[in-house]
Simulated scan of single mutants.
Amino acid sequence: MAPFIISTDRLILRKMDKDDAGKLLEIFSDPVAMAYYPSTKSEKETNGWIEWTLNNYENHGVGLWIAEDKETGEFLGQCGIVPQVVDEESRMEIGYLFARRVWGNGYATEAATACKKYGFEHLNLSEMISLVDVNNHPSAKVAERIGMTIKKKIFKWGKEILVYSVSK
């Protein structure tokens, strides 16, 4: 098993690598899972996503991590901390995206809670955000469950986005 960044009761969050492209395509090729993204992603775009993530690890010490079932090692999705620009300022976002087959099991909330704790305790961040499409109610519920509140609405990625925030 690859070394992990975070361990919870049910999950391991580990660094993403190039071998994860096939796993990520389960999510990225699913139009329902990707409904709030600009579009689904091809294999080439997925490899670009992995490169972006590896660059985040290198340049920021954080990024999206692969979420796996702690007992079985089964791929569930991704969750982590990524830099995002909001109002021309770089902020750290808790991002999460899980395979549709595991929706409704609380994995996103469990992983996001662990990322929040990691950001505050290990990275000494004073605040973290989540950027949520105004129509993505399940994602908004995850942000709310981990103690985030809406700070503002912005226009990003060609649409209205809610900026959720939580402070240490």
Rank of each mutant, 00 (worst) to 15 (best):
V102T: 10
C79H: 01
E71C: 07
I146V: 14
M16F: 03
S165N: 13
L54D: 10
G61F: 06
H122F: 09
E68F: 00
F75Y: 14
A143Q: 04
D19P: 00
R10M: 01
P83M: 08
T109K: 03
D87G: 07
G80Q: 05
N136A: 02
L125V: 09
E127A: 14
G61T: 05
N124L: 10
W157V: 06
R100Y: 00
A114H: 00
T46Q: 10
K156M: 12
D9K: 05
A2Q: 11
D30H: 11
T40D: 03
I129T: 07
S126L: 07
W65R: 02
G106S: 10
I5C: 03
P138S: 08
Q84V: 15
K168E: 13
E43T: 11
V134Q: 11
T53N: 11
P138C: 13
K70A: 14
N105V: 00
M1S: 13
N47W: 05
M1E: 11
V85K: 14
S90T: 15
A99C: 11
A67N: 06
E144H: 05
L25S: 02
T72H: 10
L64H: 08
E43K: 13
I50A: 06
N135C: 09
H137C: 00
I81N: 01
M148Q: 15
E88F: 09
D17K: 11
M92K: 08
G158Q: 09
L24A: 08
D19A: 14
V62H: 07
L64M: 13
S39T: 12
W49T: 13
K23L: 15
D20V: 03
E144L: 04
T40G: 07
I150N: 02
E121Q: 12
F75E: 05
W52L: 09
I81Q: 01
K151I: 09
G61N: 09
N47S: 04
I161E: 06
T40M: 12
N135M: 09
R101L: 00
E93Y: 00
V32F: 09
D87E: 15
P83T: 08
K159T: 12
K18H: 05
M34I: 06
W65H: 09
G119F: 03
F98D: 12
V62L: 02
E74V: 05
D20N: 12
H137A: 13
N55E: 14
H122Y: 07
R91F: 00
Y37C: 04
E51K: 04
K15E: 15
K141M: 11
M1G: 15
K23H: 12
A2D: 10
V85Y: 08
V62T: 14
G22R: 00
T72I: 01
K23Y: 11
D9Q: 12
F120M: 11
N47E: 15
Q84D: 12
V134N: 06
K141A: 14
L13P: 03
V85S: 14
Q78H: 12
Q84H: 10
P83N: 10
E58G: 00
D19K: 13
A33C: 02
G158Y: 10
I94G: 12
P3I: 03
C79P: 01
M1I: 09
I5N: 09
V86W: 04
L25K: 14
M1W: 11
C115K: 01
Y37S: 07
L25Q: 11
A21P: 01
V82N: 11
I50F: 08
F155Q: 08
V32M: 06
N135A: 13
D9F: 00
A21K: 04
P31A: 06
V32E: 14
Y118K: 02
M1A: 10
I154E: 05
